[in-house]
Design a protein around this nucleic acid. Sequence first.
DNA 1: ACATACGGGACAGCCCGTTACT
DNA 2: AGTAACGGGCTGTCCCGTATGT
Lengths: 212, 212, 212, 212
Amino acid sequence: MAKRPAAARKRTNDPQAMRRRVLDVAALAFQSGGYHSTSTHDIMREAGVTGGALHHHFPTKKAIALAVLRERVAQAVEQTWIAPVRSARTVADGIRDIFAGTVAALDDRGRVLGCPLNNLALELSLADPDLRNEIETIFDRWREAITGKLRADGAAGTEQSAPAEDLATLVVATYSGAMAMAKAEQSTAPLKVCARQLAALLRPRGRKPSSR
Amino acid sequence: MAKRPAAARKRTNDPQAMRRRVLDVAALAFQSGGYHSTSTHDIMREAGVTGGALHHHFPTKKAIALAVLRERVAQAVEQTWIAPVRSARTVADGIRDIFAGTVAALDDRGRVLGCPLNNLALELSLADPDLRNEIETIFDRWREAITGKLRADGAAGTEQSAPAEDLATLVVATYSGAMAMAKAEQSTAPLKVCARQLAALLRPRGRKPSSR
Amino acid sequence: MAKRPAAARKRTNDPQAMRRRVLDVAALAFQSGGYHSTSTHDIMREAGVTGGALHHHFPTKKAIALAVLRERVAQAVEQTWIAPVRSARTVADGIRDIFAGTVAALDDRGRVLGCPLNNLALELSLADPDLRNEIETIFDRWREAITGKLRADGAAGTEQSAPAEDLATLVVATYSGAMAMAKAEQSTAPLKVCARQLAALLRPRGRKPSSR
Amino acid sequence: MAKRPAAARKRTNDPQAMRRRVLDVAALAFQSGGYHSTSTHDIMREAGVTGGALHHHFPTKKAIALAVLRERVAQAVEQTWIAPVRSARTVADGIRDIFAGTVAALDDRGRVLGCPLNNLALELSLADPDLRNEIETIFDRWREAITGKLRADGAAGTEQSAPAEDLATLVVATYSGAMAMAKAEQSTAPLKVCARQLAALLRPRGRKPSSR
DNA sequence: ACATACGGGACAGCCCGTTACT
DNA sequence: AGTAACGGGCTGTCCCGTATGT
């Protein structure tokens, strides 16, 4: 009672899988070579998708970038930062583990590709307002997750010397910058160093901080 | 008996000026739109240079990028960071002033173009080893200048809790990351926040900060 | 137990209305921008029709063109020329009124789109024999209507100096050419001028024209 | 001590020849298939020109169309209409000869390609203001040449019953329309018919035509 | 030192048509 | 009858680099 003979090669419509494949390929390519260096043909070839199909799902290259930001980069930030920070005992613990995890992942791989958000942020922020907006949103959510956790820490007795928002900004900035340096030097050293510094900064100081 | 009247003569043999013009234009274009988004024709048009002349000075586009890194970006880092840090009273003072100066400069202008070194670093580090090398060198010099000054501070009695190299890395990373966020948000707020945090961090512990 | 609520139901099975909408949209688009400049997607979007539905009614783009010629352009010629000429008192009167009506219609609208038959004739006559054939047929019917009326006029006492077929050809050619010039100049002036000339030509010789 | 062996294939820069080749090919292609049906690749292949060279001389396809209008179509109108009309004994004679020449030329060839000006006029007048402007200019010059000659005829004793401008418009419109019909029917018959009618119209009234 | 002409190959986007599916 | 996914190929444009010419 098979509806279809196995021999006949048929096209099977599976838009979600195709869309997923395209975004996976594009996300990797954008991170490896950047947005402008990645041609739509590269994506098509790599994802095994024809031009017509690609154009059906993403009318322009920018649409791919937007979807990558929304459905891949945001998700990556969520998985590697937001969720771990929230589930960590304290922010300091979370950050330490996140840095350590990132370093381990990079050491496993050969090349340091850098932070996907940062890569696209620097390349596209000035190029297009829509993309910039999306990028900003991801940065905001990232920062807010840390802010929230810092406040929770404070409420739990771990006092901080500075406003939670500011500390969160510092953390995000330092991570981003360390990633940029790691990419430029092709070494995880900057990440390790910055992890230590941030840990020291976030560690409750032995005695009450004088004031400020 | 010249075919063209002297008045219409446009060609002024001044290779150095031409080279300078090309690099100025390219440096700005690379920062505004990135390396790949800037075509050689853009540069030619903007600099008022023909293809032949451009090719005479820079055989390839990569050569322009290299020259921009060596003669413009390195110089910018030298002027905005290395020299000020060296001539400052302490690292903390220097950094505070540098951040303040950067913020002021950005506020004057409309758009936040980001750190030229960082921009090119993220776009080109993986694309070409020569360029990556050049970028790494600039990062190194930058960090070393801070390291040296931190050591001098320490010798002068201002103690630091962490190795000078590590603190320098943190400073560079934080500045780079803050610049990335500033570019993404088109706001100088991240720079201001990070400046405050770095200042607190570099301030000798145990006693009240002088003022500010 | 439908998956979609009845309110959101959009699909109204009305093949004739859909077909009519497609042809209306296509006829206008072909006249405004030409056949080749109008994409099937333009038509689909404008008519609110999906690709499959369009393909169901018209397997190819050429089929749309054929249908537009047969069911829209031919009809337009019939309405604006053939019927008015037949029902006019004399050919001269009919032509005068037709030109006047056309001028009035164009003056009302902003742009002079030109004669739909002429537009498609010049663009498609050489491209496809079937289309050319259809176009020729419409031209023939147009000319024959005028020829017949001229003969009737002659039988009624209004003599003509030339064969009716030739005069009809002249009228059609002059109208077409005047329309082309009107389109090129975006002005109805050529039509007005040619209308006067044709009127003078068709006016019975030998005695003074009554008026106008 | 020859600098180079004769066997080596050399590139010889001949911009004018290349430009001429491109325009010749484009003019023919635009007339045969129309502007939109002619791809730039067609032109490149046919003219033996590479993409880079084509782009150097004509940055856009529209630039090719403009040049074709200015340097080929305008020239064709000048050669086939303006010059002959001016050098003819009377307008009537000139028009008769021009129509006859056109018919002869078309009969020689297999296909009736139509009037190049008219073809482009109908296809491009609404598409682009610059092109429309150029087309209008050519129409104007054409009409003015006839107008001028008509006035000269009048001064020489051959009276006309209508303003010279109007008669010129009629002539141009009738020729254009006859050409459109000729193209649609792939026959020179409409041209012959219209030639006779125009001749009769331009013949001074009141006395029998000499002969022919 | 500088200018113009040119070579090829890519780029993103769009085209028309078809096929799977409801 | 109608929808959405999909196939490839083509479009105009632009790219960087080089060769020819002054």
